[in-house]
Amino acid sequence: RLYEREDHKGLMMELSEDCPSIQDRFHLSEIRSLHVLEGCWVLYELPNYRGRQYLLRPQEYRRCQDWGAMDAKAGSLRRV
């Protein structure tokens, strides 16, 4: 689950498959919190699986710093 605000607030989007462009699919370029329910995912800073990568394991991420990012920029997401 992807959230537009910290602490799992605001608009929530659910994802169960790879997403090459978060902007195209959800009209957002920033994700401020996440909740990974199962499996491991890689969040990429840019669309089409480019830029900085962040490995996400099943857990709650209340803010972008929790997954190691300096800002909430999110371009794509892929399951590993």
Rank of each mutant, 00 (worst) to 15 (best):
R1T: 08
R1D: 02
L2F: 04
Y3P: 02
Y3L: 00
Y3R: 02
E4A: 11
E4Y: 04
E4I: 03
E4P: 08
R5G: 12
R5P: 03
R5L: 14
R5K: 15
E6T: 07
E6M: 04
E6W: 04
E6A: 08
E6G: 02
D7I: 02
D7K: 05
D7S: 08
D7C: 09
H8Y: 15
K9R: 11
K9F: 05
K9N: 12
K9S: 09
G10L: 00
G10S: 01
G10W: 02
G10T: 00
L11K: 14
L11C: 13
L11A: 11
L11S: 12
M12A: 12
M12L: 09
M12D: 02
M12E: 07
M13H: 08
M13V: 14
M13P: 00
M13E: 08
M13A: 12
M13I: 11
E14G: 06
E14A: 11
E14I: 09
L15S: 02
L15M: 07
L15I: 07
S16F: 12
S16D: 14
S16L: 08
E17Q: 12
E17C: 11
E17F: 06
E17L: 06
E17V: 09
D18N: 13
D18M: 06
D18Q: 01
D18R: 01
D18L: 00
D18W: 00
D18Y: 03
C19A: 02
C19V: 07
C19L: 04
C19K: 05
P20C: 09
P20W: 06
P20Y: 00
P20E: 12
P20K: 11
S21W: 01
S21C: 12
I22P: 00
I22Y: 05
Q23V: 13
Q23A: 13
Q23Y: 10
Q23C: 10
Q23D: 08
D24F: 03
D24W: 06
R25K: 13
R25I: 05
R25E: 13
R25V: 14
R25D: 07
F26M: 13
F26K: 02
F26Q: 03
F26E: 01
H27Y: 09
H27M: 13
H27K: 11
H27E: 12
H27W: 07
L28W: 15
L28R: 13
L28N: 04
S29A: 11
S29R: 14
E30D: 07
E30S: 09
I31S: 04
I31H: 01
I31T: 03
I31C: 02
I31V: 15
R32D: 01
S33R: 01
S33H: 01
S33C: 03
S33D: 00
S33K: 00
S33T: 00
L34Y: 05
L34A: 13
L34P: 04
L34W: 06
L34E: 06
H35K: 14
H35M: 10
V36E: 01
V36M: 03
L37A: 05
L37F: 09
L37H: 08
L37W: 02
L37G: 03
E38F: 10
G39E: 10
G39N: 04
G39S: 10
G39T: 01
C40Y: 08
C40H: 12
C40P: 07
C40F: 13
C40N: 15
W41C: 09
L43Y: 09
L43E: 02
L43V: 02
Y44V: 03
Y44K: 07
Y44L: 04
Y44C: 07
E45I: 03
E45L: 02
E45T: 12
E45G: 06
E45S: 11
L46D: 07
L46N: 03
L46K: 13
L46R: 11
L46F: 15
L46W: 09
L46Q: 09
P47S: 10
P47D: 10
P47K: 03
P47E: 11
N48R: 09
N48C: 08
N48A: 08
N48L: 13
N48P: 04
Y49H: 01
Y49I: 06
R50N: 09
R50E: 13
R50C: 14
R50D: 05
G51W: 09
R52S: 09
R52V: 11
R52W: 06
R52E: 08
Q53W: 09
Q53K: 10
Y54F: 12
L55H: 13
L55P: 15
L55W: 12
L55M: 14
L55K: 11
L56K: 02
L56P: 01
L56T: 04
R57Y: 06
R57M: 08
P58K: 11
P58S: 10
P58V: 07
Q59A: 15
Q59S: 12
Q59K: 15
Q59R: 13
E60N: 07
E60P: 11
Y61C: 01
Y61T: 06
Y61A: 00
Y61V: 00
Y61R: 00
R62Q: 12
R62G: 09
R63A: 13
R63I: 04
R63S: 12
C64R: 04
C64A: 11
C64P: 15
Q65P: 04
Q65F: 09
Q65G: 13
Q65R: 10
Q65M: 08
D66R: 02
D66Y: 05
W67S: 03
G68Q: 03
A69S: 13
M70Y: 12
M70K: 13
M70W: 09
M70A: 15
M70Q: 11
D71V: 12
D71K: 12
D71I: 08
A72I: 03
A72L: 02
A72Y: 07
K73T: 12
A74D: 03
A74N: 04
A74W: 04
A74L: 07
G75C: 06
G75W: 00
G75V: 02
S76H: 03
S76V: 03
S76A: 05
S76Q: 03
L77G: 03
L77W: 05
L77D: 01
R79S: 10
